[in-house]
Amino acid sequence: MITWLTIIGMGVITYAIRLAPIVLLERFALSPALRQALKFVPVAVLSAIILPELIMPGGGVDVSLANGRLLAGLLAIFVAWRTKNVLWTIVVGMVALWLL
């Protein structure tokens, strides 16, 4: 039940964000400062998810060669940087995880 409530709430929040500027346009001029801050949201939030996944896969910090996720992640970062292609990043990262 709580899961359903969570999902519906997530939907309402997402929809409100998408709808508000369209419907309340005249009251919703985004200030330049807010626009500038919003620009950093995807990079900041996603990086905050990525790094713990790489260096603390078991719950504790593990920066060693035994950490397959860290090695696979570093390789994936390199692939993403060179190819700018999400699919290649996933494929190379997963294969690396299975092999390492």
Partner: peptide
């Protein structure tokens, strides 16, 4: 793990300026 990889694929190409890179590093750490 595919989730983290997906996000890497999205984020890394966006890191074209020093402020973007700094935002990513600071947020991650």
């Amino acid at each position: 793990f595919a989730l983290a990889l997906t996000f890497i694929g999205i984020v890394v190409p966006l890191l074209t300026t020093r402020p973007m890179l700094a935002a990513a590093v600071v947020a991650g750490v």
